[in-house]
Design a protein around this nucleic acid. Structure first.
Lengths: 330, 330
DNA sequence: CTGAAAGCGCTTACAG
DNA sequence: CTGAAAGCGCTTACAG
């Protein structure tokens, strides 16, 4: 960890001066332009991040809000509540409590750019969980996280780097599972319905779909991959499609009524299967099978593995993938 | 704030000894039974809570996990996502980011009972938000929070004490609004449907219902207050009920199908209005008006007022109540 | 405009 | 079994 004194040595000034420069927004002290530049450059080059504990001890404040519920268990929300957020939160708090850790939601303010950018206060955490469904790996934001020197665990989506720690759904397996269940139900022309977002996850699910079709001796041509926003129901008929794998519940909700108005009967003409997190498509009035990802379990596992790492236990698998299960849907 | 040295003086030992006793789970040092007792009693009597900053600075770890999303804005979830949690979370992070604060979810572990109980690490926060829909005011848990000496803001439900800081929905106004909208629609016998939980909120909503009925010159007798778990549809007919105020969406979801099977037409025979957070009853197939509470706004307001307090700005209203609005429901 | 120094409240190796 | 003391990394009043 680089400290104030490291910056001071590099900039050839005292630590008081460094501190004053780096806190210029809050401290009213005159500093010469030259010194200021030298200090800021040194801090940037060394990747200085203030130590949140020392700062808090000195300032006598954390600038952090604690949120509590009606009981110590409040945030251990039950998965029955169902929404994506509560499910993830459930696993998160369950793991945190079991291991004796607190959870801090880094709000990512854009303050103190010269003192480490958006995450100057990342230091309040011993390790980082990246909770994300659609990673932008080119993001400099992720670089900041890694530069902090703290362990980083990816939870739902993850970068291609095989060294990156991750606990995530096995999207290829999910794609195979969904496709096979349609094959088992007798479908012979199975389309994949996706959207332009969630590229990482969707690409992996699509790969699973391809694998399942190829194993069954069927082609998985690009004409069978459809964007729900550019859905051509006439073309669906032409291609003789009798099964559709919908890559998430939002797609399914968008697709179902359009099939209905086009006079396509579900499941009479076309069978649907949808990826969901828990039973989130139960409010669909179209019959639809589902492939469920165990969100809470995944997030809790991520917490455990991260704490294991912090406690010095060796991590055997860098990336742990969890299978999807077949569910009833609606 | 009581420090180690205060405990040491009271127990007539050195601060090293106090530290060792209070960390006996983690430190392997022999301490005599007598000393141990004296120290523990002193710590308890003084209400000692370890200073998280000092501890973290010394230990070089926070025992806190930072959770980040794909971008610094990740947790600023849009209210459109709708569920209770995301809405509250949305307001929470919005306020936190705007004011330059982080949010820490206190996991309320049951460790270190002698060192302050479940919230030994409450110290990581400058102030506390109690996020809660159903306060148990007799809870010793809340006492712990107040004993920390940090400002406490109640967000959704709140204790009777008028000095307690709160930002919350105006439940009485909500009760009046719901009832009046049924009156305006021509209802003349308006029942209130509740459940045994959420006493605080439900009692206030019921008071609003009574006020509205009395203002309209109608009696609000106890026979009109029904528990959805003990609903007697024959009795509903007998009483000539033509309107029902459902105190939350769960109640409405439970009630609607029972009315249907009993042959009661909605809104033909009985009009319904339901309390909801955002548009959460849109998945009801029974026509139903709604009274909406602006969750995200309330939570964000709570954050702002709490930070104002921390920054020394005077708080004019101890309790700020937000009006419900009339919504379409389903 | 810049720096030396005190001190925030803990933990722990060391001495007794 | 107990205590004196060093030191974690900052901020800020004070001196120059």
């Amino acid at each position: 960890m680089v400290r104030l004194i490291d910056v001071a040595e590099k900039a050839r000034v005292s630590i008081s001066t460094v501190s004053k420069v780096l806190n210029n927004a809050e401290v009213q002290v005159a500093i010469s332009e030259k010194t200021r530049d030298r200090v800021q450059r040194a801090a940037r080059e060394l990747g200085y991040l203030p130590n949140a504990a020392a700062r808090a001890l000195r300032r006598q404040q954390f600038r952090t809000l604690g949120v509590v519920g009606s009981s110590p268990q409040f945030f251990r929300i039950k998965p029955e509540t169902r929404s994506f957020n509560s499910e993830a939160m459930c696993g998160l708090m369950e793991g945190a409590v079991k291991r004796g850790y607190h959870v801090i939601l880094l709000s990512g303010m854009e303050t103190e750019p010269e003192a480490g950018g958006a995450f100057a206060d990342i230091g309040m955490a011993d390790a980082l969980l990246v909770l994300n469904r659609d990673l932008q790996t080119d993001d400099t934001y992720l670089a900041t996280l890694h530069n902090s020197g703290k362990p980083v665990m990816y939870v739902l989506d993850y970068p291609a780097d095989p060294e990156a720690l991750a606990s995530a759904p096995d999207d290829e397996q999910g794609g195979r599972l969904a496709t096979r269940s349609l094959l088992d139900a007798g479908c012979r022309r199975i389309a994949l319905v996706r959207k332009t977002y969630y590229r990482g996850i969707f690409d992996r699910r699509q790969k699973g779909w391809e694998q399942a079709l190829q194993q069954a001796g069927m082609a998985a041509g690009p004409e069978l991959v459809m964007d729900v926003d550019a859905m051509d129901t006439a073309r669906v008929r032409e291609l003789g499609i009798d099964g559709m794998v919908c890559l998430n519940d939002q797609i399914t909700k968008q697709l179902a009524p359009r099939l209905k108005t086009a006079g396509v009967r579900v499941p009479g003409d076309i069978r649907l299967i949808s990826f969901v997190h828990e039973a989130s498509v139960t409010d669909l009035d179209t019959p639809c099978a589902a492939v469920v990802e165990p969100l809470a379990r995944i997030v809790e596992d991520a917490v455990h593995r991260l704490v294991d790492l912090l406690e010095g236990k060796p991590i055997e698998e860098r990336q742990r993938l969890f299978p999807y299960t077949y569910g009833k849907g609606s």
